[in-house]
């Protein structure tokens, strides 16, 4: 995606890059250290990324932990669509993503990974889903961006960047794996 603005009909979208490639990488490195510190190593630790952005971030964190600790942390994929509290609210059902957690969560320390923490509803759905896979020892939450506006009593354990935003702004995390660039942008419609 390009910086600056572009035409979209009559409206203009103003974009502001708030994290670039280096910024994201540094944040993830710090989060990896924090996870290791808080959990005193990798023992019993697993990462579960929430579809879709969280999946790529979980893999990157796993890679960082491997290079820091020289230990492989299992990495799972969770699609929370079936647990969403608005799944039946719209006329059409959302597309389902893949869930792949090829290991037991029973008594594990699970770090749930997502790109943006916003209302907290996605995390609520994800926790319900995780518990259906077994009873984890504990669940922690790692996010790249916390933009505020929580609607549920949920707090992240590891945050890449706190990003106060207004409700009419859109916060997007672009990752190389999906869009070809690494950046976090705030978009606002004007005009």
């Amino acid at each position: 995606m390009k910086h600056g603005s572009r035409d979209k009909g009559q409206k203009e979208i103003r974009k502001k890059v708030v994290m670039d490639e280096e910024g994201i990488d540094r944040a993830l490195t710090r989060i990896a250290y924090e996870i290791l510190e808080k959990n005193k190593g990798v023992e019993n630790l697993v990462l579960v990324g929430i579809q879709t952005g969280g999946v790529f971030l979980a893999r990157r964190l796993s890679g960082k932990i491997l290079s820091i600790e020289n230990a492989q942390v299992p990495c799972g994929i969770l699609d929370i669509t079936l647990y969403r509290d608005d799944v039946l609210k719209k006329r059409q059902r959302p597309m389902l993503g893949k869930t792949d957690i090829p290991f037991s969560l029973e008594d594990r320390k699970v770090v749930l990974v997502d790109d943006v923490l916003f209302t907290g509803r996605t995390v609520r759905a994800a926790m319900d889903a995780l518990i259906d896979f077994g009873r984890p020892r504990l669940i922690q939450l790692a996010v790249l961006v916390d933009r505020g506006h929580r609607e549920l009593p949920i707090r992240a354990d590891f945050v890449g960047k706190n990003l106060p935003s207004s409700l009419w702004e859109a916060v997007s995390v672009h990752l190389t794996e999906k869009t070809g660039t690494d950046e976090v942008v705030i978009e606002q419609e004007t005009g």
Binding site: L82, Y83, G97, K98, T99, D100, D132, F133
Partner: peptide, 15 residues
Amino acid sequence: SFMEVSTREIKKVPT
């Protein structure tokens, strides 16, 4: 995508 649900220990989603 639903195939996976049937392989879980708790074969049920709240949807």
